[in-house]
Design a binder for these strands. Sequence first.
DNA 1: TGCCATACTTACGTCGCCGTAGGTTACGGG
DNA 2: CCCGTAACCTACGGCGACGTAAGTATGGCA
Lengths: 225, 225
Amino acid sequence: MMDGVAIDGSGTSGSDKPRRGRRVRMTGAERRQQLLDIGRTLFAERGFEGTSVEEIAAKAGVSKPVVYEHFGGKEGLYAVVVDREMRQLLDMVTGALTAGHPRELLEQAAFALLDYIETYTDGFRILVRDSPVAQSTGTFASLISDIATQVEDILGLEFKARGFDPKLAPLYAQALVGMVALTGQWWLDARKPEKAEVAAHLVNLAWHGLDGLEPKPRLIGHRKS
Amino acid sequence: MMDGVAIDGSGTSGSDKPRRGRRVRMTGAERRQQLLDIGRTLFAERGFEGTSVEEIAAKAGVSKPVVYEHFGGKEGLYAVVVDREMRQLLDMVTGALTAGHPRELLEQAAFALLDYIETYTDGFRILVRDSPVAQSTGTFASLISDIATQVEDILGLEFKARGFDPKLAPLYAQALVGMVALTGQWWLDARKPEKAEVAAHLVNLAWHGLDGLEPKPRLIGHRKS
DNA sequence: TGCCATACTTACGTCGCCGTAGGTTACGGG
DNA sequence: CCCGTAACCTACGGCGACGTAAGTATGGCA
């Protein structure tokens, strides 16, 4: 009951240039994009196995074969959704990993992750969940840990410079990413402190530790939203 | 193909006191326990929706109705498995949260969580995954974050004592739990440093921060395994 | 204006899986 | 030795979901 949107090309993109008058007949690309959007939403709230193709099709106002023509099946659609989301997240995080000073790196990365979570909430929920079949490489559940490898490299360099054992970089990278990721997940529900403040506190903890916490941490770098 | 165990009361408990001679006919409690064990394993590797009752029954060497007699259905079994695992984890962690000094608390808790992960790997995997239907209280995905509320209280007190805003305790609690949990998850695959060392490094990070990291951290408290 | 590609539909076959109805075997005590 | 109860089985109904075959509208373009 109360299905919501059903016969509308809702938030496909912005412009309505090739918009017909009444009927819902879209161009291929439009429909494809719409299905991706709907799929992302549904996968986020019900998971892969909990979402049915018919549901996706129904929500798009079309029938199943349309989905099959575009993506070959449920797994196909899911794969594209995940891939896009991975790219988006990776782009944002790697884009933030450019500053020089380690602490600024930390700030930017934490902020970027929170930013992604806020903007692409559904995508984040999907990435946190596990994929349908166990994947190839590390038999690891959550995909976010791929980001940890990014952090690994940076930490590895820093460790070497400081004379620590670079073999420990993965551990610390995981710890940092886990810290931010789980806090972000929590922050999805209780949005109590605003994004920038959360980031500041995370940096506070990661940088100074519980021992040397500052009462009123502040971000150094620029802030956007 | 290659199903493995199929007609054996494998690791139910230890003793074989009421062990019959040949046939697999178990007592109610035995079968129940065995089904719980098998269920835990399968739920851990395939998730709730990916596991079928017939699969569980087959692996136990019985037929479906046995499962239904014991647990009323798949959800029933799952509920019991999750409940037991939650209790186990909660017991271990709360049991570790007794020391006085915050740093020791941190140590013990981190070690306890890693200990749980090592000993009850399947249970941990289940708890990390999300439950079939969104639960009642906080509409939150992962169940481990329930532990964070434990940490919250302690942190809250400490914050008050130090003059920080106690409202921030949840945030830092989440961050700490996330740090340990995700690192533990990573550690499940790459068991490179041993448990105590991982705990030491986690404490190192959480306590001193990246700024004041010690090169060779060491646990203060006692260590068991 | 008529044609053809593209967007889309209805209808169906099939498979896996949940859950149950009703019957069957073994064990243990009187 | 017999019988009841506890453990267990075969068989089935039914539903939901994946995926496909074959047919229908629609809109641009020669």
